[in-house]
Design a binder for these strands. Structure first.
Lengths: 229, 229
DNA sequence: GCAAAAGTGTTCCTGATACACCCATGC
DNA sequence: GCATGGGTGTATCAGGAACACTTTTGC
């Protein structure tokens, strides 16, 4: 057993947002060394008495001001040398926010915060590029077997938003009729009596995800699945 | 930022073995406080200059003597209070071993090592019961979308072993003909020219998993899938 | 010859895929 | 009246599920 272990524990978050047919990631510009002025994932050291989840939520709030709608653990990165100063083990998280929680504001260690479309990412500090890639894979995979897409849309959304979300993130065409049929067959989205007008074209009914119904179906052995490719 | 962080980093491993139609887990009896004489997952503190994977492998070798055939990260547990002494964040791993690597031998912090059938588990130290449950879920899920079952069997195995492995771990009946047809249709297992005699009954051809072929198919977009339930 | 496990095909049915036209609105 | 996006049904096809008898060996 080592006499005294000298390793720090940090958390980092990859937070995705979706709006205007674009998938974006929340990044901060570091205000302190190392990698001062580089773009990086929001995150920081865990405090002695808070849980890992509390730490991510706190750091996100402090550094970016975003309110998170979905959060899960992604992976833990701990190779010696990933931080040039001390050994740091980083527990990374994967988060999603709705468009109306997009308001951001930099503070503490972050001198800037910005949403970057995933197609136009800057170089990232540390091994954050690796973490981000893993998060993108996770998002693509999960979209196909868990209804997490709804956490990227407004609570009430036109069907075309859902459809665009899938085609954009998975980068694949979908047959509109079959997609709608499939989603509706799950009986986890409900029609509302609201109607949405988007400039030109026929107005669209708004739908909403019924989470209670989803959990109930889960208990009965239901399995969400949208296969693309 | 906290002045000085006081958190330790550990690794723990849930190692599964399969033999004689039983799924077993590798546990150690702790030789030191806390939880002295309790059964626990093998693991321990990470040394300053080793990676997390190296740490698990080392601890497994030291404490149990097993050689691991498959290893992946499972989840990181870090709630304050999970260790009665210090705050310890544990990165847990999920491992599989083949029957012929079943030889075990206790050492260092472990005063005993033993394979426990998952149906007859003792109470575990710390939150190791939770970790073990998550590992069981992961195993069940992965069996259905990755060919990891082969890492629990001998390199060359009769088809019935594979079939029994699936029925045992997933706790569900499978149609022998459909199962064989499905697996063979993937073209990732090959017939060998060996034959295996198991007491009574007709001798069985031995098959082996072709990992190169599997990886090649993966690149072509192949997706392993055995759906049960 | 009988007990035990291995090996093997066909039918049916469900669910996925492919595909094109009409509708409601703004300008 | 035309441009824009929304809404809808059917026919075909592929893959999953159900199902039982024959073969080879040991005793």
């Amino acid at each position: 057993m080592p006499a005294i272990q000298d390793i720090k524990v940090a958390v980092d978050a990859v937070v995705f947002g979706y709006d205007a047919k674009q998938l974006s990631v929340l990044l901060i510009k570091r205000g302190v060394e190392p990698f001062k002025d580089s773009w990086a994932l929001p995150g920081g050291l865990v405090m002695d008495n808070e849980s890992l989840e509390t730490a991510v939520t706190r750091e996100l709030k402090e550094e970016t001001g975003v309110q998170i709608d979905y959060l899960e653990q992604l992976y833990t990165f701990g190779k010696p040398g990933r931080d040039p100063r001390n050994r740091v083990v980083s527990v990374s998280y994967f988060g999603l926010v709705r468009p109306n929680h997009f308001k951001i504001q930099a503070a503490t260690d972050a001198k800037e915060v910005q949403w970057f479309p995933v197609k136009e990412l800057p170089d990232l500090a540390f091994d954050h590029g690796t973490i981000l890639n893993m998060a993108k894979e996770r998002l693509k995979a999960k979209l196909q077997y868990q209804p997490i897409g709804f956490d990227l849309l407004n609570k009430e959304f036109p069907f075309s938003d859902l459809e665009n979300l899938y085609t954009t993130i998975l980068d694949h065409k979908i047959d509109r009729r079959n997609f709608r049929k499939k989603i509706l067959s799950f009986e986890i989205v409900e029609e509302t009596d609201k109607i949405h007008q988007k400039g030109s074209g026929r107005p669209a009914k708004l739908f909403k995800f019924n989470n209670k119904k989803y959990n109930q179906l889960l208990n009965e052995g239901f399995h969400f699945e949208i296969k693309i490719v």
